[in-house]
Design a protein around this nucleic acid. Structure first.
Lengths: 204, 204
DNA sequence: GTGGCGATGTATCGGGACGATACATCGGGG
DNA sequence: CCCCGATGTATCGTCCCGATACATCGCCAC
């Protein structure tokens, strides 16, 4: 999940842990608050062990000149490897998880500018299916088990149902935009665009 | 987190694991999909070890008549203990977690009919504060770092921001209702209610 | 000038929750 | 008669989290 995110960010430029966490927070701010160090550092080690990333000694190029008494622990800069790029592409291509709550969809979406249109559509439709399923489940409960539940629980279900309906509409709009070859966020604030651009900006 | 949920459900009536999972799914359907058995059974054992719940042998009252060759493993019914009820009240009273993503708020909210008004207000306002913080963070990113991000990432942030604004409004409404002593979900769909009822239904 | 303090930076630990998997019973339909 | 889906309990490896510890650096107040 954040294996994908780390690989994606390191694809743009080499970084050290602290920096990575900050970039992660702005890139995925809509998905999760901020990645914990208790997650980040073990994951970095795991990725390094798998060969997807390597340490790129940046500061202090002459290692011996550092006074050994203080056991100076400088920043560790990581960069992605060729195998890491392959792995990233592989993770990008495969569909998100089957569960609703999993933030995997959001991470995938955040890297959509690096994904081909067919995969984008597949992932968007998969997400829509899962949200629709949850929506139906909530409607069932509100319809059939309403009298067994108290006012607060019902209110919670209504709010959840509302969020589901809203997300489905959002996804519908995105899917429609994909199908007609537009970038996201075209078609509301201005309704008479000529075909604006092909596939949103490729950075790096 | 689901320690609270399990205690709350067993407070209503004794249940076995499978049943508990189903009830959990309808009660918390708006929060999380369905609790995993890999979570449920260890948690039940943990609660039992702590003394909050006990096994209540329900079916097969004469244990010896069961053929021992098949090592019959019947359903295990759990019931809450007196200490468990105390623990439940303690968990109910303390505010939810400080992080935004944590589903703890939803679980608390689902048991609001067992919480006094002061605690309800405290928890609702705490949640509002955290959602507002996240909202501000997203606004900052959309304002300051917009040009560094691609179209899809920006769209994700906008959707997240929208969800935050919507939840804040929802919370405002709930808080206003609490302050004026109404149940939730009064004040839209019908605007001329006489003071309907005091504190929503106490089940069980 | 020095002393604290917040930002930067790396790291570990225990625990909670997950999906996958295994296995057993039971009722009903092909 | 047999298989299949619902019911039911349970474990395992893995991911991710919050709390915590510790070290360095620049800056501002006293």
């Amino acid at each position: 999940m954040l294996e994908l995110a780390i690989l994606g960010l390191l694809q743009e430029s080499p970084m050290h842990g602290y920096e990575l966490r900050k970039e992660l927070a702005t890139k995925l701010g809509a998905i999760r608050a901020a990645i914990s160090y208790g997650t980040l550092y073990p994951t970095l080690r795991r990725l390094q062990a798998a060969g997807w990333i390597t340490e790129a000694g940046e500061s202090a190029p002459t290692a011996e000149e550092v006074p050994p008494l203080t056991s100076r622990r400088g920043r560790v800069v990581y960069k992605i490897t060729a195998e890491g790029k392959e792995r990233f592409a592989e993770l990008l291509a495969q569909a998100g998880p089957e569960t609703f709550d999993d933030p995997g969809f959001g991470v995938h979406f955040a890297f959509f500018s690096r994904t081909d249109r067919a995969t984008r559509l597949r992932i968007l439709e998969g997400r829509r299916r899962r949200v629709e399923e949850r929506r139906e489940g909530l409607r069932d409960v509100l319809g059939r088990a309403a009298e067994r539940l108290d006012a607060y629980t019902l209110e919670l279900q209504r709010h959840g149902l509302d969020a589901c309906e809203r997300e489905v509409r959002w996804l519908e709009e995105l899917i429609a935009n994909e199908r007609s070859g537009r970038s996201p966020r075209t078609g509301d604030s201005a309704t008479g665009h000529p075909p604006p651009e092909e596939s949103p900006g490729r950075p790096s």
